[in-house]
Design a protein around this nucleic acid. Sequence first.
DNA 1: TTTCATGTAACTTACATTATTACATGAAAT
DNA 2: ATTTCATGTAATAATGTAAGTTACATGAAA
Lengths: 151, 151
Amino acid sequence: MLLHMAEFDGPLTSDALAGMMQTNPVVIRRILAGLRKEGLVHSEKGHGGGWRLAKDLESVTLYDIHLALGAPGVLALGHRTEAPGCLVEQAVNSAMGEAFDAAEALLLSQFQQITLASLSRDFHQRLDQRGITQQALSEAAHMRNCSDGDD
Amino acid sequence: MLLHMAEFDGPLTSDALAGMMQTNPVVIRRILAGLRKEGLVHSEKGHGGGWRLAKDLESVTLYDIHLALGAPGVLALGHRTEAPGCLVEQAVNSAMGEAFDAAEALLLSQFQQITLASLSRDFHQRLDQRGITQQALSEAAHMRNCSDGDD
DNA sequence: TTTCATGTAACTTACATTATTACATGAAAT
DNA sequence: ATTTCATGTAATAATGTAAGTTACATGAAA
């Protein structure tokens, strides 16, 4: 979504973004409200209002976004109990916890390497390969980018 | 659950296991049915029936169990669409996919290092630290191990 | 003053997981 | 043989979480 905002010149409304992301405007607002708290986006009310990126593409990583989204759990396999009385469970949690921590650390360290700028470059490369000219970086072009595929 | 079975001398019924795991007997059967297909456990009907480990503790790793459970997704953050038309989404999926694959590979490689035997050793170490004698490795002892804590 | 857009709370829907019920199958004890 | 016990499995219900929706307040520009 941030990349879509990056391509568009001017603010994008929750409605427009909801159309791109195929979801509800309120869902967009909920998500972007979190990102705004971390200074990633900026919003304006009223006529000509909407959402706008607040930072340079080079300075925002997937890790920043992850944190801004509340650092949700990355691993689907979870320990049930935090401090179980069962010693068997303690042993299992201990061993799996180490493995989980290592995997999560690796994932997040990679997130820190992925900037919005790098993703944007990749996106434009794919655009060129598809043979679409750079002329129209308008909302219409965005819509096309998102619906031109096979879905 | 397999470690509980390892400690107990003789077959354990779904009911007994459900008590230990604080869930329903049918849930136990469903799970263990999957493990049985991979040869990890064995079941017997009727009087004196129940569930029993089918393999040596040294020869079973968390990875084996993971596979036997159907190799469920390990990562909670997922791509929505498999082959999206949106080029932005393609770029994001590509970058995140690499990070995910690396993290998952690391986690599973660690699972391969963790055997039931190693977990059992850790468990017995914790038992000793708690000062419980080895004398009673009966079901009663199991129940105590699981309820003696602070939960 | 109207229109547009965000800000939020409250509520509803949808989905996946887990739990439960019910009953069939098979094995051992009586 | 028949009763008892335990798994095997399908069908259904309950639960919890995420997503979607409605409604309305707030603020800004036309």
